[in-house]
């Protein structure tokens, strides 16, 4: 049973949290054409490493806020907790982030607005 240091509420029991799985999966924008196979990288494929894993957690029974965690899946040591939308700051966390196969995928590249369409993509809502 982990003791998790919620960035807002402080250390709390694992039973108050829910784990949201792998972190740093960029969502491809629908405007970017992507093959079904490349899209599947985003939709279905998840890492399950032995060792350091960057994952998302939510303080479900507390402040309900999401955050990122770098956790060793072997020792259960929590290396780092860092905010949503940011990258790990520890060396080990940075290495784990950079090492992910996901960094090179078309799905991740497609998470940014397409350059040519960027100006008009914003307002065209139905």
């Amino acid at each position: 049973m982990l003791l998790i240091n919620c960035p807002h509420c402080g250390p709390r029991e694992e039973s108050e949290f829910s784990c949201g799985g792998e972190a740093h999966i960029a969502r491809p924008l629908a405007e970017n054409t992507l093959t079904d196979a490349a899209f599947a990288d985003y939709l279905f494929l998840r890492d399950n490493p032995k060792g350091l894993f960057l994952e998302r957690w939510r303080h479900a029974a507390g402040c309900r806020r999401w955050f990122n965690m770098a956790r060793d899946t072997v020792t259960h040591e929590i290396i780092e907790i860092y905010p949503m939308g940011s990258l790990p700051k520890t060396k080990a966390g940075k290495v784990a982030h950079a090492a992910s196969w996901r960094r090179e995928t078309a799905a991740e590249a497609a998470a940014k607005p397409a350059k040519a369409k960027a100006p008009r993509a914003k307002k065209e809502n139905g």
């Binding site: 029974a61 507390g62 402040c63």
Partner: peptide
């Protein structure tokens, strides 16, 4: 103050 669980209740 804190939000937490009391047995099975938030």
């Amino acid at each position: 103050c804190a939000q937490s669980l009391l047995s099975h209740a938030g």
